[in-house]
């Protein structure tokens, strides 16, 4: 499969009162067309910022973005408009991602209106097709978001993202706010859409069981950096980074029999403001030692499996 998106050493720093907040700090990856990259990490690790930087919703501090073979790092206004038709986003909170004053059809139709060049009748018929695609009954056309449940709202968000026929969609925790039975419906919908339309996803989430399900590759982030990246099954079978190991062992498994021993981390995620040059996980790492004070290189331990820990093979 050809590469659709390539990120090279992306950095996004925010100026705060206490210094520079390294939200995204040197992330590089390639994403093939039609594949899904899962990005996992805990709150504050920069995973949402990464998605927003790729979509140019936030300005990049440094780094390069190559989209479909062309440089997309600093697009001018026209290029940005063209780019945004091909890159879309689905948000986490179906309660804040829809304008409460816009009806279902108005919300889905909005992308067409902004692009222009369509008659009102065309827009409406396209909207109805989209509603059918994502499974919202036509009778909800004139409903307002507050009258709908979370699952339906999320379907509207998906329809709106699909409207301009994008190639690439950043899914920012799209199912985290939903109940399990609804969550499964939405995940299946997203998988169906990917198959039908050849979509490429970047799936940002803190829910590891979901990410395994939907992703081809998974990237684990900690304090703005990629600590591990591997094919989904490989990562779950054989995590190398001590943070990934702890993270995977912490998932509560709905199973009474083969319960794993949890690796309990002490402490909590440290501040991403002015971090020290060494391994950022060091403060919580059970195996930390002197050499962890050096910056950690990302090494390919087995094909396609990258890890940023100097001690991965000695543990």
């Amino acid at each position: 499969m050809p590469v659709l998106l390539e990120a090279r050493d992306l950095k996004k720093y925010f100026k705060t009162g206490g210094g520079m907040l390294h939200a995204v700090d040197g992330i590089s990856f390639t994403l093939e067309r039609g594949k899904t990259l899962g990005v996992v990490g805990e709150s504050g690790c920069g995973k949402s910022t990464l998605g927003r930087v790729l979509l140019h919703l936030l300005e990049l501090t440094s780094g390069e973005i190559i989209f479909d073979g062309a440089d997309a790092t600093n697009p001018d206004k026209q290029e940005l408009h063209a780019l945004r038709e091909r890159m879309q986003v689905i948000f986490q909170d179906p309660f804040s991602s829809l304008n409460p004053r816009m009806s279902v059809s108005e919300a889905i139709m909005e992308p067409f209106k902004r692009r222009g060049g369509m008659t009102k009748a065309d827009m409406l018929s396209e909207t109805r097709i989209l509603m059918e695609t994502v499974g919202i009954a036509a009778r909800f056309e004139n409903s307002y978001p507050h009258e709908l449940d979370g699952g339906r709202r999320q379907r509207i968000g998906i329809a709106r993202a699909l409207a301009l026929k994008p190639d690439f969609i950043v899914c920012d925790e799209p199912v985290s706010a939903l109940d399990v039975s609804i969550q499964a419906q939405i995940i299946n919908l997203m998988l169906d859409l990917q198959e039908e339309r050849g979509l490429t996803y970047m799936f940002v989430t803190h829910d590891l069981s979901v990410v395994k399900y939907i992703s081809d590759d998974i990237m684990v982030m900690y304090l703005g950096q990629m600590v591990e990246k591997a094919p989904a099954n490989e990562l779950f079978r054989d995590p190398k980074h001590p943070y990934s190991k702890a993270l995977l062992s912490a998932i509560p498994v709905p199973n009474r029999k083969n319960r794993k021993k949890r690796i309990l981390l002490t402490g909590e995620i440290t501040s991403p403001v002015n971090p020290k040059p060494g391994c950022r996980f060091m403060a919580r790492c059970p195996n930390a030692s002197e050499e962890c004070n050096r910056p950690q290189e990302l090494v390919e331990c087995t094909p396609e499996h990258f890890v940023a820990c100097c001690k991965y093979d000695t543990l």
Binding site: R52, L55, L57, L80, H81, R84, E85, M87, Q88, V89, F91, Q92, D93, S96, S97, L98, N99, M102, E110, P111, R114, R115, G157, R160, A163, L164
Partner: peptide, 21 residues
């Protein structure tokens, strides 16, 4: 709110975002 970001992601101008959203 995320719908403001969503609006930017579909190329809405600032004027449209202020007036409509």
């Amino acid at each position: 709110k995320e719908y403001i970001e969503a609006a930017r992601a579909i190329n809405s101008s600032d004027a449209i975002i202020i007036v409509k959203h």
